[in-house]
Design a protein around this nucleic acid. Structure first.
Lengths: 222, 222
DNA sequence: CCAAAAGTGTTCGTACTACACCCATGC
DNA sequence: GCATGGGTGTAGTACGAACACTTTTGG
């Protein structure tokens, strides 16, 4: 079966920058390509938009199919449309980024037989296509948005300590924060609340556990 | 001549929200459609991405061809990819917005025979496709960016008065500003300078004329 | 009792807000 | 001389930045 048009049509894909903070580092999920071009190289998960599928839905589907992830924060990032960005044919890519809670490491490694792995964004292999450009933009966008919205909480598991929260903010924005000022700031937003539980880990004072008050909401600040 | 693919491909267009402040109002340039669908209705200028043309270049070209405008600020806005957004075939639209200096009204009305007209964003006709959604997003984005970057200056002609500048900011963000505070703010950014000239208009004190110091730059504030 | 991370307040500077009157010109 | 928009300063407030010690636990 083939499809014929009066004018040439580009192919359209979505590529997804899947980010999380793990082991004290901002990490991105990459897939080892099983086919040409760039066979054997690492790339962002993604795939072609189906003809009867909304572009947003395509991103949701690829997230599930290639990374086994669903129900997470997903936002359109930018559309990459240079003519030569794919050697096969004209491919325009609508890039998204997804934020994964840190501890929910239920990561079945990709539903299909592809090889998936978390990489620190500071120690990346060579990426296929223009994917390092896409990743750079995602990092920039995330860092900016963590300062003027509450997206950062999408990187949090159900319950977390304030130290962990601060660590996530520092790693995702690549900027150190003062402990007392950070706590004053996050409390002033009224977005987290104490669970009443404590979390003991090691020979020191246990930390109070917090939760996000309204996990659905992403609010703009200022 | 026809083009055949193994899988169905969507068509890709760019649509451009061309904004300016004119006669004390934020205005958008619309084109009256000469063909079905939505024949005779107003729509954003735009058109299909050519197979050997970068998506960004397509936006630049459409801006020139449909509105006779070039050399202005142009930025990608968002990609609209709902399946049913075009009744003809599957069309994915990469939307851009352009900012036109207020007085440079050298607007030859569209190079092709299309009918182009400026509309106040407060008195819009019914728009074709999902174009009112695109326009809404452009308005929101512009208003936000005027507060945290210097894009607003892209709406300024070569020389302008402070009152005019303030008016543009008020109309583009739909928020009133205090005259003295606005002036302190804009001066603190070091982005405009006095030309030394004055501008007399009417029976009152003439206004000093200013220019943008670095017209190319768009800097983020904060 | 010692090591380790958790928790907690105050001071200072700066940037935003609110606000009202004199100035220069054309007619 | 009067009507019209152009131009200017100050005081109060709120927010972000800098900064160090005490608390609680496990071993």
């Amino acid at each position: 079966m083939t499809y014929t048009y009066e004018y040439p049509h580009p192919a359209v894909t979505t590529d997804i920058v899947i980010l999380t903070v793990m082991d004290g580092e901002l990490k991105v999920l990459l897939i080892k390509r099983g086919t040409e071009p760039f066979k054997g190289q690492w790339a962002l998960p993604g795939g072609f938009v189906k003809i009867d599928e909304n572009v947003d839905n395509c991103a949701v589907r690829e997230l599930q199919e290639e990374a086994g992830i669903s129900g997470v924060y997903l936002e359109q990032l930018y559309t990459f449309g240079r003519v030569d960005r794919d050697p096969r044919e004209r491919v325009i890519s609508v890039a998204y980024y997804a934020l994964i809670p840190g501890k929910d490491l239920t990561l079945k490694a990709g539903t299909d037989a592809t090889e998936a792995e978390w990489f620190s964004v500071d120690e990346l292999p060579d990426l296929s296509f223009d994917h390092s450009e896409i990743l750079d933009l995602a990092k920039t966008r995330l860092a900016a948005k963590m300062d003027y919205s509450t997206v950062g909480l999408k990187l949090m598991p159900e319950e977390f300590t304030l130290s962990y929260l601060q660590d996530v903010y520092e790693k995702a924005t690549d900027k150190p924060r003062d402990k007392r000022n950070f706590r004053k700031w996050i409390f002033s937003l009224d977005v987290i609340e104490a669970t009443g539980k404590k979390y003991s880990k090691g020979p020191h004072r246990p930390a109070m556990l917090y939760r996000v008050i309204n996990p659905e909401e992403v609010r703009n600040i200022r």
